[in-house]
Each structure stands twice: as C-alpha cells, then as structure tokens.
Lab assay of single mutants.
Amino acid sequence: AVSDRLIGRKGVVMEAISPQNSGLVKVDGETWRATSGTVLDVGEEVSVKAIEGVKLVVEKLE
C-alpha cells in the first residue's frame, strides 16, 4: 500500500495530537490524520510507527 512507505519517515505536527484526540502531521509534503500515545504540540518532529486504517501512529522524535 502507498501508506506503507511512510513507516519510519519523519514528519511535523500540524495540529496538536493527544491520546484522546487525533491531529494532523505532514510527512513528505502530504498531510495525514495521526494518533499518538502522548501529547504532541504543533511544530514537534515525529516519526511514523504504524498505520491504522487511514491514520498514522506517530511518536516524538528523540
């Protein structure tokens, strides 16, 4: 699937994400809805860990 190529890629949070609410991330110039187990603020760099349906699962870049 086209989304599989995104796993491991870096992105930037465009709309804040929390465990309760999905947000938006931009990866390779495309905007995706994303979820995370932690709070991520706009502008934070993330990496794509998995894909669930049409949402990316991301975590903060260390």
Rank of each mutant, 00 (worst) to 15 (best):
residue 34 A to Y: 02
residue 15 E to Y: 06
residue 45 E to H: 14
residue 23 G to C: 02
residue 44 E to C: 06
residue 20 Q to R: 12
residue 58 V to E: 00
residue 32 W to G: 02
residue 18 S to L: 07
residue 49 K to I: 11
residue 8 G to P: 02
residue 39 V to M: 15
residue 25 V to L: 02
residue 17 I to Y: 01
residue 6 L to K: 03
residue 60 K to N: 04
residue 37 G to M: 13
residue 7 I to M: 08
residue 14 M to Y: 08
residue 32 W to M: 05
residue 40 L to N: 03
residue 54 V to G: 13
residue 44 E to F: 11
residue 50 A to M: 08
residue 60 K to M: 05
residue 18 S to R: 13
residue 33 R to Q: 15
residue 21 N to S: 12
residue 30 E to R: 04
residue 2 V to S: 12
residue 60 K to P: 09
residue 32 W to N: 03
residue 14 M to I: 12
residue 47 S to V: 14
residue 48 V to L: 02
residue 34 A to K: 00
residue 31 T to H: 13
residue 14 M to K: 08
residue 35 T to K: 06
residue 61 L to R: 08
residue 43 G to N: 13
residue 39 V to P: 07
residue 5 R to F: 15
residue 31 T to R: 07
residue 48 V to Q: 00
residue 11 G to D: 01
residue 11 G to P: 01
residue 59 E to I: 09
residue 13 V to A: 03
residue 45 E to N: 13
residue 35 T to A: 11
residue 11 G to I: 01
residue 27 V to M: 04
residue 33 R to A: 15
residue 24 L to E: 07
residue 2 V to C: 10
residue 23 G to Y: 07
residue 46 V to K: 00
residue 23 G to L: 03
residue 38 T to P: 02
residue 15 E to M: 09
residue 19 P to Q: 09
residue 39 V to F: 14
residue 22 S to E: 14
residue 49 K to T: 12
residue 28 D to Q: 09
residue 30 E to T: 04
residue 5 R to I: 12
residue 51 I to Y: 06
residue 51 I to Q: 05
residue 16 A to Q: 14
residue 25 V to A: 08
residue 50 A to T: 06
residue 23 G to Q: 01
residue 13 V to H: 00
residue 18 S to M: 07
residue 58 V to G: 01
residue 27 V to N: 00
residue 10 K to G: 09
residue 27 V to Q: 01
residue 38 T to D: 14
residue 37 G to Q: 14
residue 57 V to S: 05
residue 10 K to I: 10
residue 33 R to F: 15
residue 26 K to W: 11
residue 54 V to H: 06
residue 15 E to V: 08
residue 17 I to K: 01
residue 26 K to S: 12
residue 2 V to H: 07
residue 1 A to Q: 14
residue 37 G to C: 07
residue 37 G to Y: 10
residue 22 S to A: 13
residue 39 V to L: 13
residue 25 V to N: 00
residue 6 L to P: 04
residue 20 Q to T: 14
residue 58 V to W: 00
residue 57 V to H: 10
residue 21 N to L: 14
residue 12 V to T: 12
residue 10 K to R: 10
residue 19 P to I: 09
residue 56 L to S: 01
residue 22 S to H: 11
residue 55 K to E: 15
residue 31 T to G: 06
residue 25 V to Q: 01
residue 10 K to F: 11
residue 59 E to T: 10
residue 53 G to P: 03
residue 51 I to D: 02
residue 50 A to Q: 13
residue 30 E to F: 04
residue 2 V to F: 03
residue 7 I to E: 03
residue 2 V to R: 04
residue 19 P to L: 06
residue 55 K to C: 07
residue 19 P to D: 09
residue 42 V to W: 04
residue 50 A to P: 01
residue 6 L to M: 08
residue 56 L to M: 07
residue 56 L to P: 01
residue 27 V to T: 03
residue 51 I to T: 07
residue 29 G to Q: 12
residue 43 G to M: 12
residue 30 E to K: 04
residue 18 S to N: 12
residue 53 G to W: 03
residue 7 I to H: 03
residue 30 E to S: 04
residue 49 K to Y: 06
residue 13 V to W: 01
residue 29 G to S: 10
residue 48 V to I: 11
residue 9 R to K: 14
residue 28 D to Y: 06
residue 22 S to T: 09
residue 30 E to A: 05
residue 40 L to D: 01
residue 38 T to S: 12
residue 23 G to R: 01
residue 40 L to E: 02
residue 47 S to F: 12
residue 60 K to H: 07
residue 53 G to K: 05
residue 47 S to A: 11
residue 60 K to G: 07
residue 53 G to F: 04
residue 36 S to H: 02
residue 48 V to S: 01
residue 5 R to E: 15
residue 59 E to V: 15
residue 3 S to H: 11
residue 20 Q to F: 11
residue 4 D to T: 09
residue 38 T to R: 09
residue 55 K to D: 15
residue 25 V to F: 01
residue 40 L to Q: 06
residue 4 D to Y: 02
residue 57 V to Q: 06
residue 39 V to K: 15
residue 20 Q to H: 13
residue 28 D to S: 05
residue 54 V to S: 12
residue 41 D to W: 08
residue 31 T to I: 15
residue 39 V to S: 12
residue 29 G to H: 12
residue 46 V to R: 00
residue 24 L to I: 14
residue 3 S to P: 09
residue 45 E to K: 11
residue 32 W to P: 02
residue 50 A to S: 09
residue 32 W to F: 10
residue 23 G to E: 00
residue 17 I to G: 02
residue 14 M to V: 14
residue 21 N to P: 02
residue 35 T to W: 08
residue 62 E to P: 08
residue 9 R to A: 10
residue 35 T to C: 05
residue 52 E to F: 07
residue 52 E to I: 09
residue 5 R to T: 15
residue 34 A to V: 02
residue 4 D to A: 06
residue 46 V to Q: 00
residue 35 T to N: 07
residue 52 E to A: 08
residue 58 V to S: 01
residue 50 A to R: 08
residue 34 A to F: 02
residue 2 V to M: 09
residue 10 K to A: 09
residue 17 I to D: 01
residue 6 L to C: 03
residue 8 G to R: 03
residue 35 T to E: 11
residue 42 V to L: 12
residue 38 T to Q: 13
residue 36 S to G: 06
residue 3 S to Q: 12
residue 49 K to A: 08
residue 29 G to V: 07
residue 14 M to E: 09
residue 41 D to P: 11
residue 44 E to W: 13
residue 26 K to V: 09
residue 59 E to W: 05
residue 46 V to Y: 01
residue 62 E to T: 14
residue 39 V to Q: 11
residue 36 S to Y: 02
residue 53 G to L: 04
residue 13 V to K: 00
residue 61 L to E: 07
residue 47 S to I: 14
residue 57 V to F: 12
residue 62 E to N: 14
residue 15 E to R: 05
residue 50 A to W: 07
residue 31 T to C: 06
residue 23 G to I: 02
residue 33 R to I: 12
residue 1 A to G: 07
residue 40 L to I: 12
residue 31 T to V: 12
residue 41 D to T: 13
residue 43 G to T: 08
residue 27 V to D: 00
residue 40 L to S: 03
residue 34 A to T: 03
residue 22 S to W: 09
residue 58 V to H: 00
residue 21 N to M: 13
residue 13 V to S: 02
residue 29 G to N: 10
residue 38 T to L: 11
residue 35 T to Y: 05
residue 10 K to E: 08
residue 24 L to F: 11
residue 20 Q to N: 13
residue 11 G to L: 02
residue 45 E to P: 10
residue 35 T to H: 06
residue 45 E to L: 13
residue 39 V to E: 10
residue 38 T to G: 14
residue 39 V to A: 11
residue 33 R to P: 15
residue 58 V to A: 02
residue 40 L to F: 10
residue 21 N to F: 12
residue 45 E to F: 10
residue 1 A to S: 13
residue 57 V to T: 05
residue 15 E to Q: 13
residue 19 P to E: 07
residue 34 A to H: 00
residue 11 G to T: 02
residue 25 V to T: 03
residue 1 A to P: 13
residue 46 V to I: 15
residue 28 D to W: 05
residue 18 S to T: 15
residue 1 A to T: 14
residue 2 V to L: 14
residue 60 K to R: 13
residue 23 G to N: 01
residue 56 L to R: 00
residue 12 V to W: 11
residue 57 V to L: 10
residue 24 L to K: 10
residue 41 D to E: 13
residue 4 D to P: 08
residue 1 A to V: 14
residue 49 K to P: 01
residue 57 V to A: 04
residue 42 V to A: 08
residue 16 A to K: 15
residue 38 T to I: 13
residue 29 G to R: 05
residue 19 P to H: 06
